[in-house]
Design a protein around this nucleic acid. Structure first.
Lengths: 139, 139
DNA sequence: TACAACAGTGCAACCATGTTGCAAAATATT
DNA sequence: AATATTTTGCAACATGGTTGCACTGTTGTA
């Protein structure tokens, strides 16, 4: 596990620091998407707020994580799949928010269906967020 | 025009005030979605920031406007169609953001295609935001 | 139309979230 | 191990949004 973390950081030409290792481990352990606030709570004053912001920013730039827009106007971050490279994310998949446990998942294998727009509108990007009940909360 | 505005306010059991009339008129005139900041600029210090926030909140509660989640993490507001009632919005249509002019449109007549989720996931709501070039910016 | 009851507004103060500059500390390089 | 570079923590700031309270405008009734 620790190896995987340092390997990932090295692969993206980032120096190995405590905060980066810890924050990356949170993502690997959780499996679902995390907000800045989640990380702040998990690390409980171990790192400065600013460090967390900057680390997340760096991870996004390097293609380790990507952002997810949400309906309630907060930013979420989730691990990218391996084929994301710096500056070019492959994040055009469906995102799912569970109404029960509030977790957000990237459904990497569900692609967004094409939509037909009125005349004169050209599609560049589509973003689909689905909410409901996830497979863990289902009884 | 003025009649339409006061009628709408009366229909939703709201008292007729200057700020409500003015803010509602902005929506009717613009046709596209507006952010809090847009309204603040348009009304240039005529009303307090807080009044604008509260008016928008009231309009959302009464079903006059609805919110649109955006990728850049700001809240947009747009007029509801007539069949929206207080507490129950019919806002499950596609939203379109123009990359050129930054306007946001509700494409009321484009419905969101059904997506098939992995086993165990139940869909309650879907939200689709498309970005690209709108019909006004198209050459 | 006048007046009381009520709803809506403006102000000030506050909170949450995110950003920037700079000195100190940690990491990487030789 | 010593230096160059990167990262961190702190303080201060910026923005977006909320709350409490006194004041003002709107509404319904007489």
């Amino acid at each position: 596990m620790q190896n995987r973390i340092t390997d990932t950081l090295k692969k993206h030409q980032l120096s190995i620091t405590d905060s980066r290792k810890k924050i990356l481990s949170f993502f690997l352990e959780s499996g679902s998407a995390l907000a800045h606030a989640d990380i702040e709570v998990k690390s409980s004053t171990e790192f400065d707020r600013v460090t967390i912001y900057r680390t997340l920013q760096t991870f996004v730039e390097k293609g380790i994580i990507h952002t997810i827009p949400t309906a309630d106007n907060s930013i979420l971050y989730a691990l990218c799949k391996d084929d994301c490279v710096a500056g070019h994310h492959h994040d055009d998949h469906v995102h799912f928010i569970c109404d029960e446990c509030a977790s957000t998942y990237c459904l990497d294998h569900v692609s967004i269906p094409k939509v037909k727009l009125p005349k004169g509108f050209t599609v560049v990007q589509t973003n689909l967020v689905v909410s409901g009940v996830c497979n863990k909360c289902e009884q």
